[in-house]
Design a protein around this nucleic acid. Structure first.
Lengths: 220, 220
DNA sequence: CGACTGTCTATACAACTGTATATTAATGAC
DNA sequence: GTCATTAATATACAGTTGTATAGACAGTCG
């Protein structure tokens, strides 16, 4: 039966035992070593990750309740990282045309680099548990929101209209991720070609939304 | 050492043994019972399918060399089935606007019906072996080609231009499948809403490609 | 009628999985 | 130094998987 003094000086959860020899991040790093173009997060086993991290299988539970919790952590990490990269690229571009171009190009560059993070985001959206898919969905929504704000900003700056900005952003985001997912498995020589195609496709959506806005303005 | 008479009367592979008690299709049917919104083809195990089909695990090998071969058969089946359904819907529609509408609506209807086939196509595109992904890619290409032909036909009939028909078809196909994949996990009440959104998105692409074609025609 | 041939089943095995239990080792508080 | 607390481990267990091997059954042909 614990004494009253169980409550330590520090208000919440004072570490009164052995120092942790391995951290959550170490496990995440180990998991990242295992995933790749031919290995999806959802097929990782607890034991496999533990082996790669050099710890006993059971030690995994000290840091993650589930293997799914690990997967969600990976997805969050991937989303945050990619949003930062794309965001930086977008801020460098000012005109609308170059925003499309530079975003698409940066996206495809990340695909070329063997950054596992993007692969995770692209591939794991359709498999795994519900919590799993919701995590990917959440990241995509972040992208949509940022893109939506950017589209509105540019439309105002350039005086072009915008039909349903939120839908436009959604269409662009989903299309880019879908095409990116297929490009992932293709040899790198074809990436340039796909970048061109992707830019044209996005252009279609942008021109479409502008034209539809104009037509609505003309005959309300 | 086999005698020369091993070659039977029938030129190729005469069935001279026990009649097959179970067929490839029976196994495919069993596998279809197992997949669904929360179960992907790539996670099916050989034993599981055999159990569902009521046969011994080893009997599986008589009909499929791999579990991957089964998966590819499922993908092919799903692709053929869906193409037929959508194709029929498209033939019923004549004007361009109704082609977009009815195709999208038929697509979403299929999603609502608990047809496992569409689920397979939507979900398995990004996971599994290479042969696996190629099978899905092949089916998507079929859709693209048929849609492309339809777009050209309609553009000529209506006198509207078309900027890069193949790219337009690709953009539409990928977008519809991407949105469909996310809709799959949502409650059915929201399907109507998503159908509307999807129709607008596709409209954006169509209007975009037409406008771009016009602009190209004006200043060549 | 045999004999053959192909289909299917039974049994078995090694590898792997997630997790339960008990044990050891390290750290900070007293 | 002692002791409680906690991290990490070792061992173990039941379940699953894919597949190898060998045998049992049912048709067909000579």
């Amino acid at each position: 039966m614990p004494s009253i003094r169980t409550r330590t000086t520090a208000a919440r959860r004072a570490p009164a035992g052995r120092k942790a020899a391995i951290s959550r991040d170490d496990i995440i790093t180990a998991a990242l070593k295992l995933v790749g173009p031919h290995r999806s997060v959802s097929t990782l086993s607890l034991r496999e990750v533990a082996r790669e991290a050099g710890i006993a299988p059971n030690s995994f539970y000290r840091h993650f309740h589930d293997i799914d919790e690990l997967a969600i952590a990976l997805i969050d990490l991937a989303g945050r990282s990619l949003r930062q990269i794309i965001g930086a690229a977008r801020q460098r571009a000012t005109t609308e045309r170059s925003v499309v171009r530079s975003s698409v190009e940066t996206f495809m560059e990340q695909l070329g680099a063997d950054e596992k993070l993007l692969h995770i985001l692209l591939r794991e959206g359709t498999v795994g548990s519900d919590a799993f898919k919701q995590a990917v969905e959440r990241e995509l929504q972040f992208f949509e929101n940022e893109l939506c704000a950017d589209l509105i900003r540019l439309a105002e700056a350039n005086g072009t209209g915008l039909y349903e900005p939120a839908l436009t952003a959604k269409a662009i985001t989903r299309l880019v991720f879908a095409i990116g997912a297929t490009a992932m498995d293709l040899p790198r020589e074809r990436h340039a070609e796909i970048t061109e195609q992707l830019a044209v496709m996005v252009r279609m959506i942008v021109v479409g939304t502008q034209t539809m806005a104009q037509n609505r303005a003309i005959r309300p």
